[in-house]
């Protein structure tokens, strides 16, 4: 893998992002009314004042012109101001990002720690009772609405047993590590839950395929112990396709945070998104969706690069 290739791929992100922005810009202009509707019912704002504001904000120009100007400003980091808080959008987003990354990151790690061993166990004991149990559980897992599971866990842990806080990131007046950790447990588990079932199925399929390979049989024939065959020979190769899926899913964990953060009142970008939705805060919504799409495209790229890094058979030029 050469640097030229990485550069080429980075360049390839541009048309995608442009396409995404075109769609999002179009979607926002579907909205009935415009940004100045807040003033429409205000008797002290005259028609002339409205017209003047329209000109000042460039809203009197044709939509394609508005789009080009918007792209120009966005690229330079001028994302406008939030309608709800009048703060710069960039600051709003940056202020919320760490909480989401912390939650998403822990959920990602937790999901890996659960899913990979489950998949390996399922594959090495194929068609055993354990395998059927894990298969059944993963079917249950992909069929469970996470927001409902979140409610049920809140009910058990916060309402019935009162062992974990039901919402927020920290108790007021107590921001210690342990306190934040206690607040994180439920949302992290819920966020991880959504990925575990899919990943463990994928790990199982990949492991089964590798275990059927000739070189695994050769290793067995040489008298290599079962354990060593599984972990030294098969496991590492079985991980290769899983890495791609897992990398791709990182972005969807982040967008899944929209629901989880709302339920647990976690002060991250997901909750910012819902708050902005309720407040019709289009500049923030637009910025968040652009950031989300960027993350998705980037994780696509990282998945490809990681694939070629760990599997020398894959070559990109």
């Amino acid at each position: 893998m050469s640097l030229t290739y990485v550069f080429k791929r980075l360049l390839g992100m541009l048309p995608l992002l442009l396409g995404v922005s075109l769609i999002l810009f179009g979607v926002l202009h579907l909205a009935p009314g415009g940004p100045l509707d807040v003033y429409a019912d205000n008797p002290s704002v005259t028609q002339e004042a409205l017209e003047q504001m329209k000109r000042a904000f460039g809203l009197d120009q044709p939509i394609p012109v508005q789009y080009v100007k918007w792209v120009g400003a966005f690229v330079q980091g001028e994302w406008g101001f939030s309608i709800r808080t009048a703060q710069p959008v960039v600051e709003e987003v940056l202020a919320r990002l760490p909480a989401t990354l912390m939650l998403g990151g822990s959920a990602f790690v937790l999901a890996l720690i659960i899913a990979v061993p489950l998949g390996v166990l399922s594959a090495t004991r194929r068609y055993s009772g354990v395998d059927y149990l894990i298969t059944l559980l993963s079917f249950l897992g992909i069929s469970t609405p996470v927001f409902w599971l979140a409610l049920m866990l809140q009910l058990l842990f916060s309402v019935q047993w009162r062992v974990l806080p039901s919402a927020g990131m920290q108790t007021i007046g107590d921001g210690s590590f342990l306190d934040v950790l206690r607040h994180m447990l439920l949302p992290t588990f819920i966020l991880a839950f959504a990925s575990v079932a899919g990943w463990s199925r994928y790990m199982r399929a990949s492991m089964v395929e590798v275990l059927n390979q000739d070189y695994v049989r050769t290793a067995r024939a040489k008298g290599v112990s079962n354990r060593r065959v599984t972990y030294a020979h098969a496991f590492r190769n079985a991980l290769i396709p899983v890495v791609t899926v897992v990398a791709l899913d990182f972005a969807s964990i982040i967008s899944g945070a929209v629901i989880t953060e709302t339920i647990f009142a976690w002060p991250g970008v997901g909750r910012l998104f819902i708050d902005s939705m309720n407040g019709r805060d289009y500049p923030v919504l637009m910025a968040l969706l652009m950031v989300g799409s960027f993350a998705l495209i980037l994780s696509n790229l990282l998945a490809d690069l990681a694939y070629s890094l760990i599997d020398p058979r894959i070559r990109y030029d």
Binding site: P15, G19, L24, S252, S255, F273, R280, L288, G292
Partner: peptide, 23 residues
């Protein structure tokens, strides 16, 4: 297929949330 790629690049749930909020 480019259109498909672009639509796939937008996180689905937030986009649907946005559309239903607007419409």
């Amino acid at each position: 297929m480019r259109l498909t790629d672009v639509v796939l690049c937008i996180p689905l749930l937030p986009l649907i949330i946005l559309l239903s909020g607007i419409l």
